[in-house]
């Protein structure tokens, strides 16, 4: 387990007693600008540890933008500018002393469209461990690759063709490969941006099952357009609208008893 963010963060809660209910991510007054255009308005959100948090809201409301703030992927967009404070385990991720490479190793990401590298299945999963120097020997690496593929529920399907290209898999398999690739570096947080939008119901069910399992060990934040999916997999839900975080809370409550009119309209399908 990669604990680099924990070790040097004084505010980090002690490991054992907070299991399953500590706050992993704290966002305060986060604003994002793309050039002149403001995409997020003072978003403040707490994300609990070892659970699934769903971000929902109509298209263009800033869900992906918020998600990308959490591993500073917005840094790769030249015109994007982020203000506000984001803490992971009590540590400010914009702290100049913090290495963005380590941050991203600790906060994995799965994208909307499966994007396996044009390399073999094995090399896809081994990519992260290799660049971070996690595995000391070939046997180590083999072990990491196998266990990551197993946890992503893909190993049985591909164990005989690890040397084949990752791009030759089906869409659902590719997405699970991307998940395996992300968990191979043992992140603590996994961000998923609409991971099922390109998948059929069976592949979707597999990935949802997987998320349910992964939340035993990981903090998962998922963007989804499917109310049903949010209701099925998540414990917390946050509803965004036009760049504003309208409402957040336990999924049960948001879906059965939303306090804001906009949330109500959205989840009952009146707009979006």
């Amino acid at each position: 387990m990669n604990t680099m963010l924990k070790m040097d963060s004084p505010a980090a809660p002690a490991e054992a007693p907070t299991l399953g209910n500590g706050i992993k991510v704290v966002a305060r007054d986060v604003n994002v600008y793309y050039g002149e255009k403001r995409a997020l308005f003072d978003v403040s959100l707490d994300i609990p540890e070892r659970s699934v948090t769903a971000l929902i809201g109509p298209s263009g409301c800033g869900k992906s933008t918020f998600l990308r703030c959490l591993n500073r992927m917005n840094d790769t967009i030249p015109i994007a500018r982020v203000t506000g404070r984001i803490e992971i385990d009590g540590r400010d991720i914009h702290d100049p002393d913090l290495d963005v490479v380590q941050l991203r190793a600790n906060v994995g990401m799965v994208f909307q469209k499966p994007n396996p590298f044009p390399k073999s299945i094995y090399e896809n999963v081994a990519y992260g461990p290799r660049i971070h120097g996690f595995a000391n020997s070939k046997a180590d690496l083999d072990g990491v690759v196998e266990s990551s593929l197993r946890r992503a529920g893909l190993f049985e399907e591909v164990k005989d063709r690890l040397a084949d290209s990752g791009t030759g898999l089906s869409g659902g398999q590719q997405q699970r490969l991307c998940i395996a690739r992300a968990i191979a570096v043992s992140p603590e947080i996994i961000l998923m941006d609409e991971p099922c939008s390109a998948l059929d119901p069976i592949a979707t069910a597999k990935i949802e099952e997987l998320m349910d399992e992964l939340r035993q060990n990981y903090t998962i934040i998922i963007v989804t357009h499917s109310m049903q999916q949010a209701a099925r997999v998540s414990q917390q839900t946050a509803f965004f609208h036009l760049g504003i975080l309208v409402e957040d809370g336990p999924t049960q409550e948001i879906f059965t008893n939303p306090t804001d009119k906009r949330t109500q309209d959205y989840i009952t399908g009146r707009f979006g």
Binding site: L103, A105, M109, F117, R181
Partner: peptide, 10 residues
Amino acid sequence: LRDGSYGMGA
């Protein structure tokens, strides 16, 4: 592909 790699911390 680049995003995938950056997202891994490369």
